[in-house]
Simulated scan of single mutants.
Amino acid sequence: MKPLIAVLPLLFVAAGVSAKTVPVTTDLAQQNTQAVLWMQHAGEYRALCYQAYNTAMMAFDAAKARNSGKLAVMVDLDETMLDNTPYAAWQIQQHKPYESASWNKWVNAVQTPALAGAVAFANYVTKQGGTMFYVSNRSVRTFEATKANLLQAGFPNVSDVTLRLKRETSDKAPRLQSIEADGYKVVLFLGDNLNDFPELNTYHQLNEVRNATVDAHQQAFGQRFVLLPNPSYGDWEPGLGKGYYQLSDEQKAQLRNNSLKPWNGQ
């Protein structure tokens, strides 16, 4: 009995540690529930979208006063101009991870609504003489559906020139360079992901570098870069650790849990 009694405290300690470090669920889609509910229902999220577009209008006006020539605004689409939370909600209820097949089916359904204030912002830039460039990492195979969706939602100046989807790489730097090569001066960027701002060079960087980059460019946010909120997904997630996309769902869930910065309870 004495050896057993001596071991029992260790077992309770181990159980306590395990309870703190093992994630509640390894269903990654289910972990997204709170974020998607917030984006679909919270007035705070809607207010932040309006705030971002209002800021962007003022930033464009200021840039127009300082610059001449063919001025352009480069915007991302998903969770910047368009709202894909219906797809995310479907993933949650069907226990489905992100898959290109189901994503492309959603895109080709041409049912993606515009975010509140997005169309008004795009029309404002256009009326002020600027050119909207819609630069998305949707596959070029969904070009026609994406173009139809934008036109259906009321976005202006959507064409084979202004809509630039992913062909070979999700890095948007080459597409920014192609816009500039066409004689445009991009004076403002909108996105929900730091990678939507190619000048920051955060592509495939871990979060330590991404955060340091934000700190180094803090004065540019709200002036050259305007960020929309997106707690649902983004490149901050693979930024949690090297080789993130090679991990199993269980390993990803564990890494997410281990990356939390908790209070010690005292």
Rank of each mutant, 00 (worst) to 15 (best):
K2R: 14
A14T: 11
P23W: 07
T25I: 10
A29V: 06
Q30T: 11
Q31T: 08
Q31W: 07
Q34D: 12
V36C: 14
V36A: 04
A42T: 10
R46H: 09
Y50M: 05
A56C: 09
A56N: 02
A56E: 02
F60N: 01
D61H: 10
R66C: 07
G69Q: 09
D78N: 04
L82N: 00
N84R: 02
P86T: 01
H95F: 09
P113W: 00
A114H: 03
F121A: 00
A122Q: 01
N123F: 05
V125L: 00
G129A: 09
M132W: 02
F133L: 12
R138M: 02
R141I: 06
A145H: 12
L150F: 04
T162R: 12
L165I: 01
E168K: 10
I179Y: 13
K185G: 06
L188R: 01
P198W: 02
L200T: 06
N201Q: 15
N201S: 14
H204M: 14
Q205M: 13
R210L: 07
A212I: 10
V214G: 03
R224W: 10
R224N: 13
P231L: 07
S232V: 14
S232D: 11
Y233P: 03
L240E: 05
L247W: 12
K252Q: 14
L260S: 08
L260D: 07
W263G: 11
Q266I: 12
